[in-house]
């Protein structure tokens, strides 16, 4: 067990380093940070000086080493654009993104499982067909358009919900700023959460439906029915329970796409999270922020992969045998 965890940890570190290397190699193509850092009056000589001072003229490998060495201590430098420590900047924006991701994830999961179970049990009914078809709209229009349309309808025309931002926020502890505890904060969350969750909901719903259909055919469900258990007990007590393990796993692995789409959603709704911060940083070639963001993403998915692996390891005894064989 310990050897397995150690091996996975080493692999994770390698993955992190690879992500850092690749993303770092890409930054030189994103643009020239100096151009967006200084005004139009600054002379070419002065630009060259700033470039030198920032170490942008150092060989690639030196820049990379400096970055890794400092990143290892949690120091990602200072934002070119906002002149603040990157770590602080990202931590201050992270709660907004996590709250949005969490709420949209819960929405997607609740509706996804609900609709999925319904459409599996009532396969062929017109209601199921309608749900299946309508839910596809969420994956058949680009996220940005869905967001803009929601703003138009619910903020401008109906004036039910705010069009941008997080509303009033309050601090929990020192740095976690939440919008969940204020009325305007909760209202502001609704449209972005729907926009972000729609895609996931469609995915989860189809997954649950497919798994349910599989499970419902298995012998043990037939036995359960034969034992005279009620439909309700069979469907929810047995079938759904067995369905949820793969669904939760895949949903966990889908964190990446939630984070990616949060970039779009946050931009459309001016949601002050890390995704919007990243896109602004790309526009201004704020390399320290871009690097730190990508490392954060890498960390998130490495951790998720690790957890999933460990869960599998704990749950599925066959894996242990496989590993043991593979090692010998």
């Amino acid at each position: 067990m310990i050897a397995f965890i150690l091996r996975r940890l080493v692999q994770s570190v390698i993955v992190m380093l690879a992500v850092a290397l690749v993303s770092f190699a890409l930054f030189r193509f994103v643009g020239d940070p100096i151009a967006s850092m200084v005004g139009q009056e600054v002379t070419l000589a002065e630009r060259a000086e700033i470039r030198e001072a920032l170490g942008l003229n150092d060989p690639f490998i030196v820049q990379f080493w400096n970055f890794i060495a400092r990143a290892a201590t949690g120091d990602f430098g200072i934002s070119y654009r906002l002149q603040q420590p990157v770590m602080e900047l990202i931590l201050s924006r992270l709660p907004a993104t996590l709250e949005l991701a969490l709420v949209s994830g819960i929405l997607a999961f609740a509706f996804g499982v609900g609709f999925g179970v319904y459409t599996a049990l009532r396969r062929g009914s017109w209601v199921s067909g309608t749900i299946m078809t309508v839910s596809l709209i969420g994956v058949s229009l680009p996220t940005f358009l869905i967001g803009v349309l929601l703003i138009w309808v619910f903020a401008v025309e109906l004036q039910w919900l705010p069009s941008f931002g997080r509303g009033e926020t309050v601090y929990i502890g020192n740095w976690w700023r939440t919008g969940l505890l204020t009325e305007s904060g909760r209202a502001s969350l609704i449209l972005p959460a729907i926009t972000l969750g729609l895609y996931q909901m469609t995915l989860i719903m189809r997954l649950v439906r497919a798994e349910m259909l599989e499970v419902l055919r298995t012998d043990y469900i037939k036995f359960a029915r034969a034992r005279g258990l009620s439909n309700r007990a069979v469907h929810f007590g047995h079938a759904l329970k067995n369905t949820l393990v793969p669904v939760i796993t895949i949903t966990g692995l889908q964190m990446g796409s939630i984070i990616a789409f949060s970039i779009i959603t946050e931009t459309v709704f001016q949601w002050p999270g890390v995704g919007a911060l990243f896109i602004r940083s790309v526009q201004f070639v704020d390399v320290p922020v871009m690097a730190a963001y990508l490392m954060l993403i890498a960390l998130v998915f490495v951790v998720i992969n690790l957890i999933v692996d460990l869960l599998y390891y704990a749950v599925d005894p066959r894996l242990r045998v496989d590993r043991a064989n593979a090692k010998s």
Binding site: V148, I151, W152, S163, F164, T267, V268, Q270, R280
Partner: peptide, 9 residues
Amino acid sequence: SEAATRVAA
């Protein structure tokens, strides 16, 4: 930053 959102606001 988004023009449509700004006008909507």
